[in-house]
Design a protein around this nucleic acid. Structure first.
Lengths: 235, 235
DNA sequence: GTCTATATTCTGATAGAC
DNA sequence: GTCTATCAGAATATAGAC
């Protein structure tokens, strides 16, 4: 009695979306966004919702669909969350917390910039599987979500991550490991984009797993597509 | 009397979205999607709509908003288009037609693979400015739109483009210009992603124009980030 | 913690006058 | 080609019984 699509669901149909009441004040207790102590039930609902958000887009997902997937009625969802925004908030902040924690750990190493960057790339691709839904939502609905003050923290997290990456790229240049004629910030953006957008086509069962993806990209990034021996620092 | 927000607009407010009647049969004449002969008025409306779609997302954009931006009422839009889907259809197909035409021209050259690929990269970045809105919509609403049979052509166009790129990468490998230990399809995807996702942060007035972006990326792609002389074919 | 029932608002789209 | 007026449906969210 846990599975998807349990119960019969009277008086509920399906359809599409839109933010209506606008997530009034955030508050009370149901409107939390990260901080621990989520009930398992709540967490399960968040995971279900994330999958639907990823598949259909945040706005195209209705609270009815989320409830139906959980085998309850839409009204019951509001016992756990005070708005649809709160649900997606939880999806995204869980991902960002995990990601930033992993990056911080990688930065504690005293390895050279190329090694640290390689590790950050592996971390990035490594989140593709466990956080596939959240990353998809972040990619597709970023523009929409960032409109609301509630999601200001998305931009803050983005900035913090950018500083980590750019810092390593600059260090690599200063240490003579990386060419100086590339722009650190621009390079970071392109790396970032390449990693995250892979969520659109990456499927766990495919030819390459995320480790393979990461190594492929690390090779390309540092050594390039062109053939020819080079006198290069070796990771 | 052309500007935005003309007239007074009785009985119309603003808000958000969702597909309702589902674009019933496509047909008649208002439901075309590419093919020439669009009126200037129609075309102007498509451009306005594209900007809003890009800013808010397709589903979050209401026909009322589009109409308001054009200085008319929502009902009047249906003189030009038979559904909201028809509008976004036009946005996307105009972009894809232009893009594919440019790629085809580049492929007619008999230059080596590296040169042709470089040109395709320049073409890609070059569309960022004239087609910014369309590219943004395609990125953000792709998952949603591709659900509807009406937008099957999006996937077809994607496949055609993929063949062009992968063909050049393989040719470069066969000719000994590119390393053989990279996967052509995977490499293409990463290139493609890097180019299009730039639409998220690229702003025309910034430090680099799209040509600068393209050259930066071409450098990185072929020669890599690592320092060190190499015995490389020179474009 | 879930359901029943419903309020309120907004949505895409239509019909016909001008 | 635009407006007026409106339909019919679907959305989020709420209140209170169980």
């Amino acid at each position: 009695m846990d599975g998807v699509n349990a119960r019969k669901n009277t008086a509920e149909t399906t359809a599409t979306t839109s933010p209506r009441r606008q997530a009034q004040g955030d508050a009370k207790g149901k409107g939390r966004s990260s901080s621990g102590l989520a009930s398992e039930r709540r967490d399960h609902l968040v995971k279900l919702a994330a999958e639907i958000f990823a598949r259909k887009g945040f706005q195209a997902t209705t609270v009815r669909e989320i409830a139906q997937e959980a085998g309850i009625l839409s009204g019951s969802l509001y016992h756990h969350f005070d708005s649809k925004e709160t649900i997606v908030d939880e999806v995204l902040s869980q991902f960002l917390e995990d990601l930033i924690a992993r990056y911080r750990a990688a930065l504690e190493s005293d390895a050279d910039a190329r090694t640290v960057l390689s590790e950050m790339i592996r971390i990035g691709f490594g989140t593709l599987e466990p956080h596939r839904a959240a990353i998809t939502v972040m990619q597709n609905d970023w523009n929409y979500l960032r409109q609301w003050p509630r999601f200001d923290y998305l931009v803050k997290a983005e900035d913090e991550v950018e500083q980590m990456w750019v810092g390593q790229i600059k260090r690599g240049q200063a240490d003579g490991l990386f060419r100086e004629d590339v722009d650190p910030k621009l390079t970071y953006r392109m790396i970032r984009d390449t990693i995250w957008v892979a969520v659109r086509w990456f499927r766990p069962g495919g030819r390459l797993n995320t480790d393979g993806l990461a190594e492929h990209y690390i090779t390309m990034l540092f050594d390039g597509l062109a053939k020819g021996e080079r006198t290069t620092h070796k990771a």
